[in-house]
Computed example of a mutant assay.
Amino acid sequence: MLLLLPPSETKAPGGDGAPLDPDALSFPELNAVRERLVSALVTLAADVPASQAALGLSERQTDEVALNGELRTSPTLPAVERYTGVLYDTLGVAGFRRAQRARADERLAVASALFGVVRAADPIPAYRLSGGSSLPGLGGLRPLWRGPLEKTLSTVDDLVIDLRSGTYANLAAVPHAITVRVVSDGTGKRTTVSHFNKAHKGRLAAALATAAREPSTVRGIVSIAAKAGLRLEQTDPHALDLVIN
């Protein structure tokens, strides 16, 4: 099973890992695009106003530009520890026992504007780049990532549960994946939940990532979610609703 998570704009600072080594990342076939983007961001970081314009940053976020300038030299953290925010706080890998963390490292992957997709334990630096960004000389990210990333993800034989947000799902399709929509039926009519979407996906990811027995079917996913107090309903062969009241 591969649980494909969205990234986050916010990143944990620092780290104790060696600087970025593309050969240490999963899916090495993506390294050509990764290298183009890293080079573009390092070069762009020399021009702070241009970086702010391209990345949608305010004048108070010059530290984010500095992160990009140090992409090749700054320390790394495992990807699942680098990303922060509601989903990752709820996922709570810091509280996993050793066996749970080993399962999570095998099952979790993160969509990334800079790296395409990385597994949970892949060592990455802090950076700033969003899925909707357009970089000078390269343009938007979808044309860069779509072909290579769709090819990579199409070869994943495992059951893929796609928890990506729309921006990152737009970078590459995964036709065989099971998508999850967070919905409320408290009014008798199902509506998509936006405010607590990330927290609920984090709870689901934690349950599936740490389950003692890895599910191989949608029925297995639903069963594990139920044991964690989560209500999942299959709406078509490749879609699940995570229903909250």
Rank of each mutant, 00 (worst) to 15 (best):
Leu30Gly: 10
Asp21Pro: 03
Leu114Thr: 05
Ser134Asp: 01
Ser74Trp: 04
Tyr127Thr: 02
Leu149Ala: 11
Gln61Cys: 03
Ala66Trp: 02
Ser58Tyr: 04
Glu70Met: 09
Pro22Asn: 13
Asp63Lys: 07
Gly137Glu: 06
Asp122Val: 04
Leu44Gln: 03
Pro13Arg: 14
Arg142Leu: 09
Pro49Asp: 14
Arg72Met: 07
Glu59His: 08
Ser8Arg: 04
Leu41Ile: 01
Ala99Gln: 13
Arg98Glu: 15
Arg119Leu: 10
Arg36His: 03
Thr43Tyr: 00
Thr152Tyr: 06
Asp23Cys: 08
Pro125Cys: 11
Leu87Gly: 09
Thr43Glu: 15
Phe96Ser: 13
Gly131Ala: 06
Leu71Trp: 03
Ala12Gly: 05
Ser74Asp: 08
Gln52Leu: 12
Val48Leu: 08
Gly69Trp: 05
Ser39Trp: 00
Gly14Leu: 12
Leu44Phe: 04
Ala50Trp: 02
Lys11Met: 11
Gly132Asp: 07
Pro143Ala: 13
Gln100Val: 06
Asn31Phe: 04
Asp89Tyr: 05
Ala126Phe: 00
Glu150Asp: 10
Gln52Pro: 03
Arg101His: 13
Ser112Met: 09
Pro125Asp: 12
Asn68Val: 06
Leu55Phe: 09
Val93Asn: 09
Phe96Leu: 13
Ser8Leu: 10
Ala94Asp: 15
Pro125Tyr: 08
Ala111Val: 02
Gly56His: 08
Leu20Trp: 08
Val93Ile: 15
Ala12Phe: 03
Val118Cys: 10
Glu59Ile: 00
Phe27Arg: 13
Thr43Met: 07
Val117Gln: 10
Pro78Leu: 09
Pro125Thr: 06
Ser39His: 09
Arg82Cys: 01
Leu44Pro: 02
Glu150Pro: 05
Gly69Phe: 07
Pro7Val: 00
Pro6Ile: 07
Glu35Trp: 05
Leu30Cys: 12
Gly139His: 04
Leu135Trp: 02
Pro19Arg: 05
Leu87Pro: 07
Arg103Trp: 09
Arg119Ser: 12
Leu5Trp: 07
Arg142His: 05
Ile124Met: 06
Lys11Arg: 14
Val110Met: 14
Val48Arg: 02
Leu144Ile: 04
Gly137Asp: 03
Ala121Arg: 14
Pro6Gly: 13
Gly132Cys: 03
Ala50Glu: 13
Ala32Glu: 15
Tyr83Cys: 00
Ala24Ile: 01
Ala46Tyr: 02
Gly92Ser: 14
Arg82Gln: 07
Thr90Cys: 08
Ala18Phe: 02
Ser130Phe: 00
Asp47Ile: 01
Gln100Glu: 15
Arg146Met: 07
Leu114Arg: 10
Lys11Ala: 01
Ala113Gly: 15
Glu29Tyr: 05
Pro6Leu: 13
